[in-house]
Computed example of a mutant assay.
Amino acid sequence: MNTGYRRLHLLVEGQTEEIVVNNVLEPHLRDRGWTVTQSIVATKRPASGASHKGGVSSWAKLERDIKLLLGNTDCTC
């Protein structure tokens, strides 16, 4: 069995999915040697102020977040 570092990053749609990851998936997988992190899809990124999260409205927005995550090798998402 491979005992190397195992990491899973989940891109979730909203706060409900984030809760499931934090309360169900992460503890279960952590006990099996996984590091689990998640990001909520950003649905609006205004020039100033906080971004709005949750609710996928188009493939283009989801694709942008996926590409940003794939380019992030430090997994501090």
Rank of each mutant, 00 (worst) to 15 (best):
N2S: 06
T3K: 08
G4Y: 00
Y5R: 08
Y5K: 14
R6S: 06
R6C: 04
R6V: 03
R7L: 03
R7Q: 06
R7A: 01
H9A: 08
L10D: 02
L10S: 06
L10F: 03
L10W: 05
L11P: 02
L11H: 02
V12I: 03
E13T: 10
E13S: 08
G14F: 07
G14R: 01
T16E: 08
E17D: 15
E17Q: 14
E18T: 08
E18W: 15
E18R: 12
I19F: 03
V20D: 02
V21K: 05
N22E: 10
N22L: 14
N23Y: 09
V24K: 13
V24P: 04
L25E: 10
L25I: 15
L25S: 14
L25C: 07
E26Q: 13
P27G: 11
H28M: 15
L29C: 04
L29G: 03
L29I: 09
L29D: 10
R30T: 15
R32D: 09
R32Y: 00
R32I: 03
R32A: 05
G33H: 03
W34S: 08
W34N: 03
T35G: 06
T35F: 12
T37F: 07
T37G: 11
T37S: 13
S39M: 00
S39Q: 14
S39F: 03
V41N: 01
A42Y: 05
T43S: 12
K44C: 02
R45F: 14
R45C: 12
A47V: 09
S48E: 14
S48W: 15
S48T: 13
G49Y: 04
A50E: 09
A50P: 02
A50Y: 01
A50I: 01
A50F: 01
A50L: 07
S51V: 09
S51F: 11
S51Y: 05
H52V: 13
H52N: 13
H52E: 15
G54W: 14
G55F: 01
S57V: 00
S58G: 00
W59C: 08
A60Y: 06
K61T: 13
K61M: 11
L62N: 05
L62A: 01
L62G: 10
L62M: 10
R64S: 10
R64H: 14
R64M: 12
D65L: 12
D65H: 05
K67T: 05
K67R: 14
K67Y: 06
L68W: 06
G71C: 09
N72M: 06
T73K: 11
T73E: 09
T73P: 05
D74C: 03
D74N: 08
C75F: 11
C75E: 06
T76P: 01
C77M: 04
